[in-house]
Design a protein around this nucleic acid. Sequence first.
DNA 1: TTACTCCTGGCC
DNA 2: GGCCAGGAGTAA
Length: 282
Amino acid sequence: MPELPEVETVRRGLAPLCEDRTIVSAEFSRDDILIVPDDAGQKPARWAQEFTEGMVIDRVYRHGKYLLFDTEGERGWAVHLGMSGSLVVYTDGAAPDKHTHAVLNMCCGAELHYRAPRRFGRWIAARDGPARTAVSGRVGIDALDPTLDVRRFMNRLGGSQATIKSRLLDQRLVAGLGNIYADEALFAAGIHPRCPASSLDPGRWATLLRGIRSVLRRALANGGTTFASYRDARGRKGGNRGHLSVYGREGEQCPRCGNSVERIKVAGRGTHCCAACQQMPE
DNA sequence: TTACTCCTGGCC
DNA sequence: GGCCAGGAGTAA
């Protein structure tokens, strides 16, 4: 499941292969993959024709788990990879399979293929501005934004009785964490996922923010985590799986205290933690 | 705050 | 053959 490190890895691969390239044509095999704002009054195919064909991709950037594509003329769209989505650029041809839902044909024969076997991902067209405007309101500050300090972090997520894990997963508060890195960050900080957010003191918030940064940066350095389907822009798997402490390690020894890693349910999500060294507050 | 929906590969 | 995970939007 692509989260911030996976999406950023894809972005780093895509940018040099897409930026300054002209889109020759865009093909969507399914209408429901592309969301066009209601008031744009256009069918996806027509939107694609009008706003991608003949356009030059200016910039590929990212906010949270969204990949953002800006074209010349201040237009753009956002891509969410969902659970199983990938964006891979082929330079010497590749046959789309039944899970390939969109293909951007670019100049020089490069093709951007969007595959999403579970079809949870979406392309979202911006109504009348750059890609960033397509996701405003859906995402809060990016988890790796250098201006996110402890005070802002605490103000955003605190003040709620909800579990800290559900707060970390709320993309409108801080964007980029999914189930894997929420569990890893809470483990790194020694905080139990069921802690009410309102119970954390400033010291714990600081530790948690450091934990988030640390697990995200390590994952990024390893090219992301691949469980099943995640691939980068060249189709390669990520190498971070072996660096996870608790996620996917139910029943194994906690790398910190040696107790058994548990899998519990928090906020409706499968959650991995060590009950011995991730504590609830008094 | 919880539950449902979407969807399919992978697992039992 | 059936069930489940899981992000995000929406409904109850």
